[in-house]
Amino acid sequence: MFFGIEWDTSSQWAFAVSIFPILLHGLVVTLEATVVGFFIALILGLVLAALKSAPTRIVRWPAKLLTEFIRDTPLLIQLFFLFYVLPEFGITLPAFLTGALALGVQYSAYTSEVYRAGLEAVAKGQREAARALNLAPGRTFTHIILPQAIPRIIPALGNYLVSIMKDVPVLSVVTVLEMLGVARIIGDRTGGYLIPLSMVGALYLVMTIIASFGVRYLDTHLPKRGLSLK
């Protein structure tokens, strides 16, 4: 029994049907972790990208160093740090939040590069025109540069959304009951791993296919309003 749901081991088919709702519990956690992690990656990545293109070196360098550090260390180490080391300093976060944060921070390093490339792809003349019109740098960034950069980078960001989703199982090592962790526990308790793990694989396939279609839909249906997308 798991999440108050009994499994039926009378036949393989019955077993699969009975554990499906249990896996859905895990699926919800997986999706939540994906969404929260992606949201953190989107915001933090944008902040990092803005810092990395700052005019002063004192701002630029720490941001670059941080990005490099995040990118060059495994997600699992960052996760362990947040989960085991932070409490030593009196900061204890719930397991789910720790996991989502680790995912978000890890992927912010990647999204920041996506943003940076997108921002650099906006024609230089746009910044010059904004400057000639005396628009403030902040306003130029949010209202001139960013709106032109975002449609170009949606496919790349979408790919990272799928990647995050596929990295969520790592969170099971810090006791987050996401889908794969749930499947493993079912296997531990019933001795049958083949069916739950196969079902997780199939569910992942379905989710990533849906996500990919979603990203493609966004990419083709987002108003481009005259932006030349190369």
């Binding site: 746009q126 010059e128 025109a129 000639a132 709106p147 932006l227 030349s228």
Partner: peptide, 14 residues
């Protein structure tokens, strides 16, 4: 005090 017209127009496309 100054306004500029650019060779490439540089209108805001969005």
């Amino acid at each position: 005090q100054l306004g500029m017209v650019f060779q490439q127009f540089n209108l805001f496309p969005h």
